[in-house]
Nucleic acid binder design. Sequence first.
DNA 1: ACAGTGACAACAT
DNA 2: TATGTTGCCACTG
Length: 116
Amino acid sequence: MPNFYEQVYAVVRRIPPGKVTSYGRIAQMLGRPNAARAVGYALSSLKDKEHNVPWQRVVNSQGRISIVNREYTAQLQADLLRAEGVAVSEQFTLDLDQHLWEGLHLVELDDILHGW
DNA sequence: ACAGTGACAACAT
DNA sequence: TATGTTGCCACTG
């Protein structure tokens, strides 16, 4: 049974290129509608290589890149998304109606939540 | 055991 | 619109 962080990573790995979702929606998928902050915390602790997580595909509920006081990182996220075909504005915003990921099917969620 | 820490989100001004 | 406030929660030392 993976811990919460691993569950978050498992979900994020399912997000296809060119699509995005929010911290809160990931929390909801994992059955913890109020754990949005913990999702952000999980991603912030990523050490890149060990995991293979497309962290750039997670933005806040407003469709905005949510990394504060780290301009270079926000810029990196924007560039990574643009490389996938996502239109990101100079203010680090994007159109959720156009790029929002539908989410997982119940079978896939069961895999993540209960192991396989 | 416990207080501090965020890449959140919803609401209230 | 744009800030500010408050509730949240998993993880850490």
